[in-house]
């Protein structure tokens, strides 16, 4: 099995990705995560202005067989949500890193980005779980 995992972003152990642009960031779930869930039929997103700590559940995704919580990689304030994935949750399966981002945030704690994995580390981590 191989999963896409772009080099320019960071990853969590709970299969979220985060693209950091100075004080702000974009967050979604990884190719590995969408593959494990299979056809995603529903996503529930937070509202703009919600504040979360790292590891807090900020969204939920459901396939017909499973439901998964989506966790914050770092502390942050929600500044934008991607409503298009609510209408077309299948985008999360087809394009998890571009069209199917979940939220944009203002990062509250830059230090926490040091705890995240890079693409190489994340690929290894995925392989270790699927063997």
């Amino acid at each position: 099995m191989s999963w896409k995992s772009p080099e320019n972003i960071l990853y969590t152990k709970t299969d979220e990705w985060i693209l950091i642009d100075e004080q702000t960031a974009t967050i979604g779930i990884t190719d590995y995560a969408q593959d494990q869930l299979s056809d995603i039929v529903y996503v529930e997103l937070p509202t703009i202005g919600d504040n979360f700590k790292a590891k807090d559940i900020f969204a939920t995704v459901e396939s017909v067989k499973a439901a998964a919580d989506v966790n914050m990689p770092v502390d942050g304030l929600i500044t934008e949500v991607n409503n298009s994935i609510e209408d077309e949750p299948e985008l999360i399966n087809s394009d998890p890193y571009e069209q199917a981002w979940f939220v944009k945030i203002d990062i509250s704690n830059q230090e926490q980005t040091k705890n995240l994995m890079n693409a190489t580390e994340y690929i290894e981590y995925c392989k270790s779980r699927s063997s």
């Binding site: 039929v41 529903y42 949750p89």
Partner: peptide
């Protein structure tokens, strides 16, 4: 077999 994905979407 029935299409459960369509039923849910």
């Amino acid at each position: 077999r029935l299409d459960e994905v369509q039923a849910a979407r």
